[in-house]
Amino acid sequence: MLAILKNRHVRDTGFQAGFVGALVILIVALVVTGKANLEAQGLTSGFGFLERSTGWRISFSLIDYTTSSPYWLALVVGLLNSLFLGAVSLSFATLIGVTVGVMRTSGNGMAELVGTTFVEIFRNVPLILQLLFWYSLLLSLPAPREVEPVLGVFAFTGRGIYIPGLNITGLSAFLIVVSLIAGASVNLWLSTAERFKTVSVAVRRKWKICLWLGVAIVVFAITWWGRLPETPFFTIPEHRGLNYRNGIRVSPELFACIIAISIYGAAYIAEIIRSGFNAISPGQGEAGHALGLSRWQIFTRIRLPLAIRIVMPTLINQYVWLFKATTIGIAISFTDFFMVVSTAINQSGQTLELIAILMGGFLVINYSIAWVLNRVNDAIKLKGTQMRI
């Protein structure tokens, strides 16, 4: 017996088993105690409430929802709203961030000043304050009856932003955004992955053409499937009476969330991109000049691919953090996943179950984002130690 206890492997295994066992016992004890407390207060546990009617309305929904819809459908609406907000905000944050990052490393004094000013202002102001600022600014816009459309098609009013659009369901719009993001991700993978370096440029160009043709076909199919019956396929906002009709109305809550998250995230992404460009040795660009490449070719074929490889792990963390930041919409009553769960807790009293659903939902979403981007990082990173920059 003493000989067994002296074995380090046996002791380590015993300690680990004891720790896991104690953790399981603690969890079971908490569950039993919580259930007993709920029963003492006359509260029922379980997920049967998900089939009950909610009785409350949701202002923004990508799918059909009424006050008689069950709780599970309300949770799906909130989840889709969060995914839609995250997809749009992260896309804009990336575009703005990369642009500002390039400006800060362009060597042009005015561009660097503008980029630095952007980063220093929006990075150092709390996100919640930026959200409240943009929301207040949007609500202070004139009433629809006082607004003349910009270029005849855009109307900026205190009730929302009216833009031209297709008469399709919200779910179709969400699927179109996802399809475009997926297409851009695959295009980046084809351009930078190490496994495609042996494939000629002409072949890869054909692959990309086929890729975007496929994306166009998918987008067209989704648009046709989601078209609203008995309505024109494309409409523009029209001033009628005291309000605008037709087109797409973007609510102040949704628009404020998109602006705040996009700009705040772009300030951090810009610094991440700038660090990637600064980590590239000047010799890389000089080699491109020696080969007769133009400045644009050096940027797109040398500097940008190397910078993306360098900063991808940091970008992954930033994207996960930015998606979690979509929960700030509750401050202005945007009906995202967090807002729907909070309202459901107040209405149903099923606190533990709904918090578990909220935590599980964000865990699955953020893990999926990290998993996909980590696979992209593994595909595009240079193997071995030949990359010494």
Results as ranks from 00 to 15, higher is better:
235 T>P: 09
314 T>I: 02
325 A>K: 04
344 A>D: 09
207 W>D: 00
271 E>D: 10
338 F>I: 11
295 R>M: 04
217 I>M: 15
294 S>T: 10
288 G>Q: 10
239 H>A: 03
351 T>I: 01
251 S>Q: 13
285 G>A: 14
220 F>G: 12
316 I>K: 01
225 W>K: 09
242 L>S: 06
223 T>R: 11
346 N>Q: 08
322 L>C: 03
253 E>Y: 14
242 L>H: 09
258 I>N: 04
341 V>W: 06
349 G>Q: 03
212 W>Y: 15
227 R>Y: 02
222 I>E: 13
243 N>I: 05
343 T>C: 10
250 V>L: 15
287 A>E: 05
314 T>E: 00
333 S>M: 11
278 N>W: 03
256 A>D: 13
243 N>E: 13
225 W>C: 05
330 I>H: 12
225 W>D: 08
337 F>M: 03
345 I>R: 05
230 E>V: 14
215 V>C: 13
340 V>W: 12
259 I>L: 10
219 V>C: 15
230 E>M: 08
249 R>N: 13
273 I>Q: 07
270 A>G: 07
317 N>Y: 01
244 Y>W: 13
336 D>F: 05
274 R>P: 01
327 T>R: 04
330 I>G: 12
317 N>Q: 02
341 V>T: 02
347 Q>N: 06
331 A>T: 06
208 K>W: 06
306 L>N: 04
245 R>E: 07
263 I>A: 11
252 P>Y: 09
324 K>E: 13
286 E>Q: 15
236 I>W: 11
303 R>M: 05
233 F>I: 05
297 Q>T: 12
330 I>S: 14
239 H>C: 02
289 H>E: 09
212 W>R: 10
256 A>I: 07
213 L>W: 13
350 Q>S: 04
207 W>V: 01
316 I>D: 01
335 T>R: 10
265 G>E: 03
311 V>I: 00
280 I>H: 02
314 T>R: 04
216 A>G: 15
326 T>A: 01
339 M>S: 14
283 G>L: 08
316 I>C: 01
286 E>F: 11
279 A>M: 02
276 G>I: 00
209 I>M: 09
318 Q>F: 00
245 R>Y: 09
351 T>Y: 07
273 I>N: 05
275 S>Q: 01
325 A>M: 09
346 N>C: 05
246 N>Y: 13
297 Q>F: 13
346 N>P: 10
290 A>C: 09
280 I>G: 02
241 G>H: 11
250 V>I: 15
225 W>G: 09
276 G>H: 00
321 W>A: 05
302 I>C: 04
227 R>W: 05
341 V>S: 02
269 I>Q: 06
217 I>F: 15
322 L>K: 04
347 Q>H: 08
313 P>N: 00
278 N>P: 04
234 F>R: 09
229 P>R: 00
337 F>E: 02
338 F>V: 12
328 I>F: 08
223 T>C: 13
248 I>R: 12
347 Q>F: 10
347 Q>P: 07
261 I>S: 00
306 L>T: 03
266 A>M: 07
